[in-house]
Design a binder for these strands. Structure first.
Ligand SMILES: [Mn+2]
Ligand SMILES: [Mn+2]
Ligand SMILES: [Mn+2]
Ligand SMILES: [Mn+2]
Lengths: 222, 222
DNA sequence: AAATATATTTAGTCAAGACTAAATTTTAGA
DNA sequence: TCTAAAATTTAGTCTTGACTAAATATATTT
């Protein structure tokens, strides 16, 4: 593995991991948008990552990038740091799930492997972070997630919320106020085919949720 | 205050603070040694810090540097981070006092003010770190330390260890094994004027300590 | 199949922060 | 006080990772 890894390289690899989870290469433009870096700069960094020995990304001009095994390991290392940190900020310092992302984004690059092991052990080797995202294992395998988007459910189905994919603090606070957080049981009571709204019952309260929300909540059907 | 502050600038300011505690300006060479950076590079950075608006250091060629009020505030902010982090790593993650310095050295630059407040509160606003160093207050005042170097004590004097100024893990482990840690009561039973060795009683054990050690332990005389 | 629009890459620039080698002070010794 | 040593600064270079503007390749329309 490459001796040192800059914060920048780590952030690129992490984003490439996320963008290629669907199986397709990550495009320069998508990466640029996610990283908030101009496309020209992204091309430059991609070429550098591809030139490392061993290569961290597989790159062909105009065809996007994918991670090599070494790049994937590096990405999973950062993602493990990030998700353990978020979990730990929530559990031990009383952060709420909408406050942890930014902090973890900076800490993830500087903690030691020792620190990583200590917080993992202190938390009891958790498998999911506060948003329900799976935490890569210590040997850097990403567990498989078999959850379904809430948007795919229909009336009379029951489910448990597994994860919420959003880093938008406002949305997270909103969902929290509705009681829509990982672990919570829900039931679908209505569906409108016109706007794809779902009526979701949590406890004794019901809420009508649009696609913008239901595609971001993933559940396990019962 | 300057908008952003790089890790480098923070490390420079922290070292300048430490080197100027005695009242004298910090020399280029001393800074270079402490920072493990070549003197020529130190000159360059000093000039940059002096040119900031507001200036962070007072600098006259060949005369060394001192901190301006703004530079001192920035230094104390980093030192507060460092010492709170060390305390917290020891208290909540089971680090020993010889393991925390390196980790804190990296974390100190990336934690938010929110994080700082949270760990300070969780620790009960501690006044000293695991080495007994005073922690700057939230409003960035450095408490005064009235402790005496152990080397100044003579037979029949009793004292309590306040702080140990060393970042050398080997020395710290050695002192730990001798029971010479902050808070511990000691008594001087012998002194040799030839080599300045002191015989120090801790509990029921006695140890003969040379100047290399006795100048690094600070005590409160009883 | 052109023509246009979009995406991507190249070329050249910049700032930060380090380094080496050479020049210049300052300090200390004889 | 003059000289040699030590400390410090200057000048010029390098790497990293950004940026803009311009060139080129790919995709989408007509
Ligand atoms: Mn996150
Ligand atoms: Mn990050
Ligand atoms: Mn320390
Ligand atoms: Mn540091």
């Amino acid at each position: 593995m490459p001796k040192t890894m800059t914060k920048s390289a780590q952030d690129y690899l992490k984003r490439i991991y996320e963008l290629t989870e669907c199986g397709l290469p990550a495009s320069t433009n998508d990466l640029a948008r996610e990283l908030e870096i101009k496309p020209a700069s992204v091309t430059g960094m991609i070429q550098k990552l591809a030139a490392e020995k061993p290569a961290l990304v597989e790159y062909q001009k105009h065809q996007g990038v994918t991670l090599t095994p070494a790049g994937k390991r590096a990405a999973l290392e950062v993602i493990r740091h990030h998700r353990l940190l978020e979990t730990w900020l929530v559990q031990t310092l009383g952060y709420s799930w909408d406050e942890v992302h930014e902090e973890a984004e900076r800490l993830e690059h500087v903690i030691s492997e020792d620190f990583e092991r200590r917080i993992a052990a202190a938390l009891g080797n958790p498998t999911r972070d506060p948003h329900g995202e799976l935490i890569p294992t210590e040997d850097l395998k990403m567990p498989v997630d078999d959850s379904t988007p809430l948007s795919a459910l229909r009336p009379n189905q029951s489910a448990t919320i597994q994860r919420v994919i959003s880093q938008d603090p406002n949305l997270l606070r909103h969902l929290n106020s509705l009681g829509l957080t990982p672990g919570v049981q829900i039931e679908i009571t209505d569906y409108s085919s016109f706007d794809n709204n779902l009526t979701v019952k949590v406890g004794r309260k019901s809420n009508v949720l649009g696609l913008n929300i239901t595609t971001k909540i993933f559940v396990e059907i019962e």
